[in-house]
Amino acid sequence: MPAIVPLGRRAFLQGSSLLLAPLLCDRTVLGRPHQAASEGGAESLRIGLVTDLHYADKPPAGSRYYRESLDKLAEAAAAYREVKPHFVVELGDLIDAADSVAVETEYLKRINKELASICDQRHYVLGNHCVATLRKEEFLQVVERPQAFYSFDEQGMHFVVLDACFRSDGEPYGRNNFKWTDANIPAEELDWLAEDLRATERPTLVFAHQRLDVHDNHGVRNAAAVRKVLEGAGQVQAVFQGHSHQNDYRNIAGIHYCTMVAMVEGSGPEQNGYSWMEIAGSGAIEVHGFRKQKPYQWVPAPS
């Protein structure tokens, strides 16, 4: 078992990838999803996490096997039905680009039908590929979400969904009007984020697509300004993000930045990657990694 390493306000535990049988992660955990929470005296909150499916009905390109995302998501759905997540979060790039709006809309309807079968409550982070051919309002209409960035509360926790699909000049992505390296949180959204976090004292998790912890091509250009808002709020525990397709982790000013592995990469079920997160009543958070997704855990520091 990996050792717990103190990290300032919290302690962080990171282990190597688990060796998984099909459809299963840690069977002992799956068989008792409420046990961790019982130590904190309340039911745990369970959240399914998937990212970068890039579903499209087209041949593979490089390491991306677009059609196989349907089967990979079906495997994730089977695992989630065991733990019964309260909601599922898709962290962006649910679909890949098509030559027309009509074809891309069909890609989206097809993969979303599978995602919608998992549970009723779902949250979608916009990725750059989601709006390569579509406009934001077209994507959101299909997945039945009213807006691209927003917040919500669940079982004593606060959650924020961000949208970094904006150019440096403030124009929203859509219809191939952008470069994927030019991702930004515009001033209006940043102001909204600051106000939203001021209005709550609940422990907070943030969901994003483009990364907020790096300054390379996969990062949000004004990530430092976004992190300043998150750090100033005082209650943000973690950011979950996708986009760069590989497992990665950083702790910046006491906030955990977890980059999740892409589902589209590689052929075959052994190349899959997804997770479910459990938030215990005690405040402990554990990410159960399936296949190529690494597991993570952090607990509140002793008072």
Rank of each mutant, 00 (worst) to 15 (best):
E188F: 05
G41V: 07
I285K: 10
L140P: 01
A187Y: 07
M157A: 04
K228I: 00
E171V: 15
A223F: 08
L20T: 14
V161G: 02
F152P: 00
Y150H: 14
Q147A: 13
L205R: 05
L212D: 06
L126G: 05
D93R: 02
L53Y: 02
E137S: 10
T105S: 15
C165Q: 11
N247C: 13
E137C: 05
N222L: 09
G289Y: 04
S151R: 11
Q121T: 14
G232C: 11
Y249C: 07
A253F: 04
L49Q: 07
M277P: 01
P302F: 07
E265N: 05
Q271E: 15
L190C: 08
T259Q: 12
Q147D: 14
Y65E: 00
N177Q: 05
V287H: 08
G62P: 03
R81F: 11
S44R: 12
V264W: 05
L30F: 09
G174K: 05
G234W: 01
G174T: 06
H54I: 03
D169V: 09
R135G: 11
D26A: 14
A164D: 07
K72P: 03
P186V: 08
A208S: 15
A238T: 03
N272H: 09
A61T: 13
E270F: 02
A183I: 00
L23H: 12
K84E: 15
H256Q: 14
I4L: 12
F166A: 00
P146W: 06
Q35G: 05
D213N: 13
G273T: 00
Q121W: 11
M263S: 08
H129W: 10
Q155N: 14
R9V: 09
E90H: 12
V101A: 07
Y66C: 00
V299M: 12
H288Q: 10
Y65R: 00
L13E: 13
D191E: 15
R250H: 14
R67N: 08
Q121C: 10
F139Q: 00
V50Q: 11
D120Y: 04
A78N: 04
L162F: 03
P60F: 01
E286A: 15
C25R: 11
R135A: 09
E138S: 02
H129E: 08
E189K: 06
P6W: 04
Q237C: 11
N251F: 05
K72D: 06
S282C: 11
F166C: 03
L70P: 00
A262C: 09
A187F: 10
V103G: 03
P203G: 04
G15I: 08
H54E: 10
C165R: 01
A148C: 09
A79L: 13
R227I: 08
L20P: 07
